[in-house]
């Protein structure tokens, strides 16, 4: 309970911070990308509360804001998961079947690239070479590298984080 309360307070504080930040963009319809980027830097993602603030301040529709966020992969609608999985799609990993690894991750987690599981535990991303080509195909979960993967090894790895 105490934790949830703290989270709520932190969220509100960040919203306030974003509100302040947005002031300089008042009425500037063209500043949408910058405004969203800065807001995401503060909050870590772009919840609907933030989207509404941006729409209100820039004087554009919420629909336009949402449309833009979902078009660009560097914006995120959900907070980053507790465990961030990055799948290497660098050349070495790619030729050794990184795509199959990624597909398996997607089905195991039930999410697409750039998304976070509903319980907030995992988020899934793709990335370029992570300097572990000798271990290709490889993924990183938070800071730890998992290499020489096959799709069938994925469930066991994920289990460690349950």
């Amino acid at each position: 309970m105490a934790v949830a309360l703290n989270q709520q307070q932190e969220f509100t504080a960040k919203l306030k911070q974003i509100e302040e930040m947005l002031k300089k963009y008042k009425g500037q319809k063209g500043a949408l990308l910058q405004a969203l980027q800065e807001a995401q830097n503060i909050m870590g993602y772009l919840p609907i509360e933030v989207q509404e603030m941006v729409a209100e301040t820039l004087d554009i529709t919420l629909s336009e804001v949402y449309s833009t966020i979902t078009f660009y992969s560097f914006f995120s609608l959900k907070p980053k998961g507790k465990y961030q999985i990055r799948t290497c799609l660098g050349t070495a990993c790619y030729v050794r079947g990184a795509e199959k690894i990624l597909d398996r991750l997607k089905t195991e987690l039930g999410i697409e690239v750039g998304d976070t599981t509903d319980d907030g535990k995992f988020s899934l991303n793709a990335c370029r070479c992570i300097g572990a080509c000798g271990l290709a195909p490889a993924i990183i979960i938070n800071d730890e590298v998992y290499g020489r993967l096959t799709p069938d090894k994925i469930p066991d790895i994920l289990k460690k984080f349950e």
Binding site: I48, T61, L62, S63, E64, Y66, S67, T70, F71
Partner: peptide
């Protein structure tokens, strides 16, 4: 958006997943 200045539908997502819809 333009004629009615209501603006509740837009293209969401990208590429093959693009869909004309309200937010979320």
């Amino acid at each position: 958006h333009k004629v009615q200045s209501v603006g509740v539908i837009s293209p969401n997502y990208r590429g093959f997943n693009t869909v004309i819809a309200p937010v979320y």
